[in-house]
């Protein structure tokens, strides 16, 4: 992915201004603050992508084309995770797009969260787990289970100094300092089972 700024790049492609506004609102509701490019027609979207611009996400409404949207877009190569909103084509585009129908607010929000936050393939933005390296996850696991630095070092066959460095990095990456806080994080993210923690 080529990002000029550190912000997530999102294209919102919809013909109607109000529709684009609504999409922007939902994005902000789920807590993302991306750089948004608004596009009002399919031809603009095509030429945008042809210029080699690589967004992180595309959200497209089926009003973007007056003709059958599916005929139009199957020929386009989308460089990133793309969502098509509309009432048709859910089956047809399967595999290439996340296609959603808008039913109610709760569903929309959930769909959007899934779209933005859930990992799908190789080129996804970092999720919570990949925030930490595998080694850091190993260390976090042991910290959350209440092991001392010395015990962790022995268990993972690394020096106590390395343990401390890992712990420092984990705290920095997660913004969590205490063992109790790290334990909550580890359980929340399925890194350890709640049953493993002996209170």
């Amino acid at each position: 992915m080529e990002n000029k700024t550190s912000k997530i790049q999102v294209i919102i492609a919809a013909k109607h201004f109000l529709y684009r506004l609504g999409l922007k609102t939902i994005i902000s509701v789920i807590g993302i603050d991306p750089e948004i490019t608004e596009i009002g027609s399919l031809s603009d979207l095509k030429s945008f992508l042809n210029k080699g611009y690589k967004p992180d996400f595309i959200i497209m409404n089926n009003d973007i084309s007056d003709e059958s949207i599916l005929d139009q877009i199957t020929a386009i190569e989308f460089p990133c995770r793309t969502m098509l909103i509309g009432d048709k084509g859910q089956e047809l585009v399967k595999g290439r797009f996340e296609a959603i129908c808008l039913e109610n607010q709760k569903e929309i929000v959930e769909k959007f969260q899934e779209f933005f936050f859930e990992p799908e393939s190789k080129q996804e933005p970092s999720t919570d787990k990949s925030l930490l390296s595998e080694r850091e996850i190993d260390v976090l696991k042991t910290v959350a289970l209440g092991l001392s630095n010395k015990e962790i070092a022995d268990k993972l066959c690394i020096s106590a100094h390395t343990v401390i460095t890992h712990r420092k990095n984990i705290t920095e990456k997660l913004g969590i300092k205490t063992i109790a806080g790290l334990t909550v994080y580890a359980i929340m993210n399925g890194i350890i089972n709640p049953e493993e923690v002996n209170q």
């Binding site: 509701v29 807590g31 919570d128 913004g175 969590i176 300092k177 806080g181 994080y185 929340m188």
Partner: peptide
Amino acid sequence: EVKLSDLKNLIIRHLPPVIRQ
């Protein structure tokens, strides 16, 4: 204060959004 700060971060950074905003 430090545990409160952890709690804040768990909510701000690690709780899935849209839980009763």
